[in-house]
Design a protein around this nucleic acid. Structure first.
Lengths: 214, 214, 214, 214
DNA sequence: CATGAATGAGGTTTCATTCAT
DNA sequence: TATGAATGAAACCTCATTCAT
């Protein structure tokens, strides 16, 4: 799916394993030094491979960027596709709060990745970039579903569900991206609680607002 | 202030003029191709200067990144330092709404810059990066002041003023950074209105909330 | 005979078969892309072999060039050694004309090979090159014999038989090598007839010439 | 004219001088080792330049091949465009004989080049190759003109002037290309005389031939 | 002050060949 | 015998920067 990477090997399993290995090893280096500033020399050193072997499983340096970004995305995408099931058994509000908490904590763990993706996605060619953006869209959709369920049972009242879901995701990512600012401002717990409160206020149906129209 | 750049010239005015010229011309190229992928040759072509002249007024390629980013920041910082004055004469709520509207529209115009800054600040060395981050902080502070005034006169009720101000700025920047998502989701007007409503809900003192504690 | 190629196999027949297979398959690729620009990977792909197997029957990439060139030479050498027999039963002039016609038509069919040999023989190491040149020499000798017979029976009168025989071969090869020019100039039939006429004029004993001495 | 080569310099004269220098120095190496087997490292060593400087005046390794081939072609093309004038003042036969003699001697001097061009033209991309072939065509045309003049005054009688002119050029080039054979067969003087005689016989109007039709 | 030719280290990628399986 | 993963030297080319003019 998405983007196809050249290999000289015909053993699909081996290719997948080696690429996983590459992504895992290179991630650290890319996050630290940035993509453009990491040389292929440094990449192969980090992988403990020879140049030739690397290019056996990968068509170009950019393919490696793609692997690393996808590896990073999977870390939290995968997670959500697992836990999202349980959320159906509790009230929409509880589910939303729980999901946000989990998500924010998860992003806190993988801060470096989040920042990295924000900085390097631009360097991908169109097809590779599309599949990264798709992963982001799936992330938003997870929250969309939670919000929609809440609307259906009357617990939430939301004009633009997509926009709210998007905000939830973005605010989480900002905890990583803007850490240079936020760390001096509050703890993750405060940050999370503040935004959970904010989101709930905004989507609560009991809150009467005349709607500010400029 | 901030970061000092090497020059061989002793004519301060000329240096400033040339640097302004460089920043203005190179901005477009950097925004389009990214810093690392822009060669010094492309830089001098964009400036209509010779390499020698460029290095007469600038110590390194990275200095140019610093110039461009600062040039970009000034575009909206300066603006705000002008218009912020008038805002004192109207009610805090009106002032806030007005400021947000102006800010969001301004960022809409300079989307490319915003995205660029999000992507390239990491490439700056410590001292240069600090002065960029300072500019961002000043931006937040503008909204902090508006919010604080509102709190003082009882129009707003806010636990963490800095955090809200920061959110206002970040949400604006996301309109540029996440345009690939948001353009398909709503117009700038809808985006702005949605968030103004949200922010007002969250800081309104009349809204009673028990505070969701997980 | 000629040049010896390393193998790890002891089954001579298998070795010969495999080498024949290699030459046949790789010929097309070499003719199209040139020797230096064809990678070993492309060679094994063309052969449907693994790298390991290839190097089992061949010592180096250059050995393959040798195989291919010899394969190419055999295409027309073999042919001549078959048909040359019949030529003894007809008059020297008829035999010559017939041989030239056959030869020119044959080369027309294997143009690519001829061009290839002109371009790549230089890449062979000394011993391999010698055996290629030997094949060319045998080709010339075929015509030498025809011419000599004609001289003996008084049908031809030639100062330097070798030189004329060599010209006959070279002119044929030029039809392939200089096709970019000759195709726009005449058909194969015209080309052949023109040169048969020329050769006959030059070797005819009835033609009186004082010999141009500068 | 013909093929355009990238340069970073704007000083046309300097570019021409440097390229001339490159062609002159690299020619020897290319002729000796072949194009593909000569590394850029060896090229810059032969030129006494740094890599950077080389690529200042040339876009790629292949451009250098183009320069060298053109340099080689000019050696005899230029020559002819000078001497061809005088030939108009003598009889067509004398002019032809004289031109052939000069040409064959000239090619003898630049054997290496001739061989090189036969082997490497294939490596040029289309546009560059075209302009090399054009130079060859101009060479043929020189002899075409001489032959045509002879026909007009009745000294020659030729069916296909172009083909004869082409033969004259090709036979000359073969003296270089097939030296491995011809050196053992005759001297340049013998080779030249033999072919002058042959050509004159073939184009002489007094020689009666019924035309051999198979 | 302004120019742009010169530098050579370092960039990414390909290559022919080996050898453990 | 047959395989193809692994190697790392060497390929071509670009780069930011300097300095003589």
């Amino acid at each position: 799916m998405g983007h196809s990477i050249r290999t000289y090997s015909k053993d699909d399993e081996l290719v997948a394993a080696r690429r996983e290995e590459i992504a895992r090893n290179v991630a650290r280096v890319f996050v630290k030094k940035g993509y453009d500033r990491t040389s292929v020399r440094e990449i192969v050193d980090a992988c403990g491979m020879s140049t030739g072997t690397l290019y056996h499983y990968v068509g170009s340096k950019e393919d490696i960027l793609y692997l690393v970004i996808n590896h990073g995305l999977s870390i939290y995408t995968d997670f959500f596709e697992e836990t999202a099931v349980d959320l159906d058994t509790i009230s929409p509000t509880d589910a939303l709060v729980c999901a946000i908490r989990e998500f924010y904590q998860r992003l806190d763990k993988f801060q470096d990745f989040t920042v990295f993706i924000y900085q390097e996605t631009k360097n991908l060619q169109s097809s590779a970039r599309q599949s990264v953006l798709d992963a982001e869209r799936r992330l938003v959709r997870i929250f969309e579903r939670l919000l929609t369920r809440g609307c259906e049972v009357g617990e939430f009242k939301i004009d633009n569900v997509t926009l709210v879901a998007h905000d939830i995701v973005v605010v989480a990512e900002m905890w990583a991206v803007r850490r240079w600012f936020l760390r001096k401002c509050c703890t993750l717990e405060e940050y999370t609680r503040h935004h959970i409160d904010s989101f709930l206020k905004c989507i609560s149906p009991t809150h009467f607002t005349e709607g500010y129209t400029s």
